[in-house]
């Protein structure tokens, strides 16, 4: 598995660490408990294209938003989280 880092070019997945799904927007601090439960615990877990966050820990250390197919591990693209 290789990830095309927008800063370093295509690099082996061993250089990256993932924390999983790119989360939806964070609920407001006073949002109801159900919204927080959804945000913290529930996942779409799709079989197919999946937006996820990876950090290039052994490279530029930037956080990337990666689109990857969970059925084939093919990476469709990666962009910097910080613009």
């Amino acid at each position: 598995m290789r990830i095309p880092c927008p800063f370093c070019g295509e690099r082996d997945a061993a250089e990256f660490l993932t924390i999983g799904s790119a989360p939806p927007p964070r609920p407001a601090a006073d949002a109801p408990m159900a919204a927080w439960h959804d945000y913290v615990h529930l996942r779409d877990n799709p079989a197919g294209l999946h937006a996820e966050l990876w950090q290039h820990i052994h490279g530029c250390r930037q956080w990337l938003r990666v689109m990857r197919d969970t059925r084939t591990h093919v990476v469709a693209g990666a962009e910097a989280c910080r613009r």
Partner: peptide, 16 residues
């Protein structure tokens, strides 16, 4: 391996 997957196969970093 650490990433979401339905592929029933993994990658080399974990093998190493």
């Amino acid at each position: 391996d650490g990433y979401n997957s339905y592929a029933q196969r993994g990658n080399l970093p974990v093998v190493h």
